Simulated assay, not measured.
Amino acid sequence: MTKRTPTLCFLIVLCLLALVVPITAQAPGDQPINVIYQNSFATDPQWITNNPSLDYWDPGLEMYHFSIEPSNGGYAYVPINNYDKGSFTFEYDVLLNRVDPGATFRIGFSGSEMDPATGPNVLTEFTNAKYGQIMWLHLVTPGNMMVEVNSQNDDTLSSGPAAYSGPTVKYELNKTYHVMVNYDADQKVLSMKVNEKISGDQIWSYYVNTGEALRGMNRIYIGSIGDYGPLDIYASGYIDNVRLTSPGNVTPVPTTATVMEAVPVPTGTITPKTTATVPTPYPVTSPTQSPLSVIPVMSALGIAGVCCGRLLQKKD
Rank of each mutant, 00 (worst) to 15 (best):
A185C: 05
D227N: 09
Q313R: 12
K170H: 15
C307L: 09
V179Q: 03
L312Y: 15
I303D: 00
V147P: 07
D93Y: 00
V122W: 02
I134R: 08
S158N: 14
Q187S: 13
I225Q: 07
N209T: 08
N249A: 09
G248V: 04
P252G: 05
Q187W: 11
S151F: 10
C307S: 09
D55F: 14
S53P: 07
I203V: 06
V179I: 15
R98M: 07
V297M: 08
T245L: 03
L214W: 05
N97R: 11
V189E: 08
V194N: 03
V278S: 09
V94H: 05
T255F: 05
I33V: 13
D44R: 07
I239K: 05
G226V: 00
V194F: 01
I134T: 10
N34R: 11
Y221K: 01
I222S: 10
Q133G: 02
D154S: 14
N50R: 03
L157Y: 14
V149L: 01
L123R: 00
A235F: 07
A276Q: 14
L14R: 03
A25I: 11
G160H: 11
N121V: 07
S158H: 14
G309N: 11
N72F: 12
P6C: 02
A129Y: 14
G86R: 06
I225T: 08
T280M: 11
Y64F: 13
L17S: 00
G302R: 08
D232G: 01
N51C: 09
I134A: 06
G111N: 01
G73K: 03
T285W: 01
H65A: 15
R98E: 06
G223M: 03
T245M: 10
P230Y: 10
G211R: 06
V265A: 11
P79T: 09
N72D: 15
S191W: 04
V169S: 10
L157G: 13
V179P: 01
Y282S: 12
T124W: 06
G248Q: 07
Y83T: 01
Y164V: 06
V208R: 07
G119P: 02
E91C: 06
E172M: 12
D184I: 13
I198E: 08
S87V: 12
L61V: 13
N153F: 12
Q187N: 15
T141Q: 11
G216I: 10
Q313H: 13
R219Q: 09
T274F: 14
A304Q: 02
G200R: 00
E62R: 13
D93H: 04
S299Q: 10
G237M: 05
L190N: 06
G86Q: 03
Y183E: 04
T255L: 07
L19N: 00
T176G: 13
I80L: 05
T271S: 14
P45S: 04
P70F: 04
L312P: 10
V297F: 03
V250L: 10
M1Q: 14
H138Y: 09
G248W: 06
K193V: 07
P296T: 02
A163C: 10
W57G: 01
V122G: 02
Y83W: 12
T24Y: 00
P272I: 13
Y238T: 03
I33L: 07
Q202T: 15
N218Y: 05
G229S: 06
T168R: 03
Y221A: 03
D240Y: 04
M63R: 15
M146A: 14
T168P: 04
S299E: 08
M114T: 01
T258H: 09
D186I: 12
G248C: 04
W57T: 02
L8M: 12
